[in-house]
C-alpha cells in the first residue's frame, strides 16, 4: 500500500474519530478546536498524496500559475463578494483535473490570506475552495460537464450557491458563537445567502465570458508542451 494511502486511512479511521471523542470529553466550547482540527485532518491526506506523488516541476509550476491568477483575482478586485476567484479555480480543475483543482483551490485560499489576513477560517476556506476545484475537475473528467460556456455558467452558479458557499457558511456556524439551535443554523445560512448569490452571479458571468478563451489557451499550452497527461514524462 502506498504511504499516502495508509496515512489517509489512518486519518479517517483513527485520527478523526479520536479527535471527535476527545472533543466531546473536553469541557466548555472546545468544538471550536475540534472542528478546526478535523478540517485540518481532512486536508492532510490531499496534501500528503500530493507530496507522495513527488510532483514534477511542470506540474508544480502550472498549479502555481493558476493559484497566482486566482489570488490576484481575489486580492486585486476591490468589490467584496464579487470575485472571479471561484471561476478561476473551477476552470483550473476542468483543465487540469480534480487533484490539480483541489490544490489550486486550497493553496489559493491559504496564499491569498497572506494578503488579506489569516484567521481561524483559513482551514475552512482551504477546504471549501479546494472542494470547488475538486468537484468541477471530477465532473469534467467523467465527461458529465460540458465545456460550453452556458453550461459552465449554470454549473458555476449552482456550485457556488449550493456547494462552496454553504461550506464557507459552515465555518461561520462553527466559529461564530451562536450555538447550534435550528434557528441559529437557519440564521447563519440565510445571512450567507446574499453574499453567496452575488458570488454565484459573478462566477456565472465570468464563466460565460472567460471560460471559452481561457480553456482554449490552457488546452493550447497543454498540447504544446504535452503537459499533465502522463505523470512519468512530465
Amino acid at each position: 500500500m502506498k504511504k499516502s494511502t495508509s496515512v489517509s486511512l489512518l486519518v479517517f479511521f483513527l485520527l478523526i474519530p479520536a479527535t471527535l471523542f476527545l472533543g466531546t470529553k473536553l469541557p466548555g466550547r472546545s468544538y471550536y478546536i475540534t472542528s478546526t482540527l478535523i478540517i485540518l485532518q481532512m486536508l492532510l491526506p490531499f496534501f500528503l498524496a500530493f507530496e507522495g506523488r513527488k510532483p514534477q516541476a511542470r506540474e508544480l509550476v502550472v498549479i502555481a500559475v493558476m493559484c497566482g491568477i486566482s489570488i490576484v483575482s481575489r486580492v486585486a478586485i476591490p468589490i467584496p463578494h464579487f470575485k472571479p476567484t471561484f471561476a478561476m479555480i473551477m476552470l483550473s480543475g476542468i483543465a487540469f483535473g480534480p487533484e490539480a483543482g483541489f490544490m489550486v483551490g486550497a493553496v489559493t485560499a491559504f496564499g491569498s490570506n497572506f494578503f488579506v489576513g489569516q484567521g481561524a477560517y483559513t482551514p475552512w476556506q482551504m477546504m471549501a475552495y479546494g472542494a470547488g476545484g475538486l468537484l468541477s475537475g471530477f465532473l469534467s473528467q467523467k465527461g458529465w460537464l460540458s465545456r460550453k460556456p452556458i453550461y459552465l455558467a449554470i454549473f458555476g452558479f449552482l456550485s457556488v450557491l449550493l456547494w462552496v458557499g454553504p461550506l464557507l457558511d459552515l465555518c461561520s456556524l462553527f466559529l461564530m458563537p451562536i450555538g447550534f439551535s435550528k434557528k441559529a443554523i437557519i440564521a447563519v445560512f440565510a445571512s450567507g445567502l446574499p453574499a453567496n448569490l452575488m458570488q454565484a452571479g459573478c462566477t456565472a458571468a465570468v464563466m460565460l465570458l472567460v471560460s471559452r478563451p481561457l480553456l482554449e489557451r490552457l488546452d493550447r499550452i497543454k498540447l504544446k508542451y504535452g503537459m499533465l497527461e502522463n505523470h512519468d514524462k512530465l
Binding site: 516541476a57 511542470r58 500559475v65 491568477i69 472567460v210 478563451p213 489557451r217 490552457l218
Partner: peptide, 29 residues
Amino acid sequence: GLAVVGALVSWALEGGVVTADSMRARGYG
C-alpha cells in the same frame, strides 16, 4: 479586460513552463 487577462494567462503559463524546464535542468526532483 478579457484581452489583458488572456494575454496574462498565456504569458504566465509559458513563462512557467520555461521555469519548470530550467528547474529540471538544474536537477529538481
